[in-house]
Amino acid sequence: MAGAIASRMSFTSLKRKQPKTFTVRIITMDAEMEFNCEVKWKGKDLFDLVCRTLGLRETWFFGLQYTVKDSVAWLKMDKKVLDHDVPKDEPVTFHFLAKFYPENVEEELVQDITQHLFFLQVKKQILDEKIYCPPEASVLLASYAVQAKYGDYDPSVHKRGFLAEEELLPKRVINLYQMTPEMWEERITAWYAEHRGRMRDEAEMEYLKIAQDTEMYGVNYFLIRNKKGTELLLGVDALGLHIYDPENKLTPKTSFPWNEIRNISYSDKEFTIKPLDKKIDVFKFNSSKLRVNKLILQLCIGNHDLFMRRRKADSLEVQQMKAQAREEKARKQMERQRL
């Protein structure tokens, strides 16, 4: 009897100690995973858990994205996960995505996992036509994507039709030419054969080096109105803020590099960009919603921080990571030579 009471007591105290949890689904560019998240967890707790699970150390480029009322939002690190305006039906779903882009992929992306996630995200943006890519660059990119996936070209393995099921080119590009799928495959394969000897990480890096030269790469666009009520697009990227004609997302009418901006602020729906040079006019605009203003400001702060950080010496952590990556690369090369 006493034993039964004791065991019941310990069971209830154990039960009381267990924290309340909820299920979270995280969707990355190539995987889905579920976690039990404590109700009290902040954004950072969940974000760190995801990064640890992925083995990702270059965390500063990434965020957990969700959609609220048709607009994109990112989980705040210092706010409780459940205090965000996320649909509370379980599993609560977030997309683990790159939020900020490097200025130079080759210099800044160190770990293979970071490069791979960027490669997958940028490839999707190009195929979904979120990033404009000219036809010739699309074919070259496709050939690197094939090298990354299939390894070296081997005509005895990669026979006619081997790319038939692959999505390799934006539809817009395909529609510009009177070419059959076989003709596209032939052209892509001819370039794929040129990449012989490139490992997956190298092919993905070549892909990113080409993609980063396209005008829309890494730009977040927002519809705004200037003080006269004219519709414009605001672009936020690694280099600064850009103002576009809504008909032309490729070439900005004006740009404000981060090092030439004194201050960015908003009150209610009005945004103000104050340039450092007092001779240049202050630029004021309105966005559609307060929520969008918050996102614009978040992206400005994050991109500005990274812009400043790039212009200082690497932190110890990054130095160490780069040294490790160099060692790893040398080791892989030795291995390949040996084989």
Binding site: P135, E136, L176, Y177, M179, W191, H195, G197
Partner: peptide, 27 residues
């Protein structure tokens, strides 16, 4: 065999030329 050296712009020009004969008149 060492990988054949490719210059990016030369590659793009070559691809552009190979696609051009098949361009839609509207394109």
């Amino acid at each position: 065999n060492p990988p054949k050296f490719l210059t990016y712009h030369k590659a793009l020009a070559e691809i552009r030329n190979s696609l051009q004969p098949f361009a839609n008149s509207s394109g």
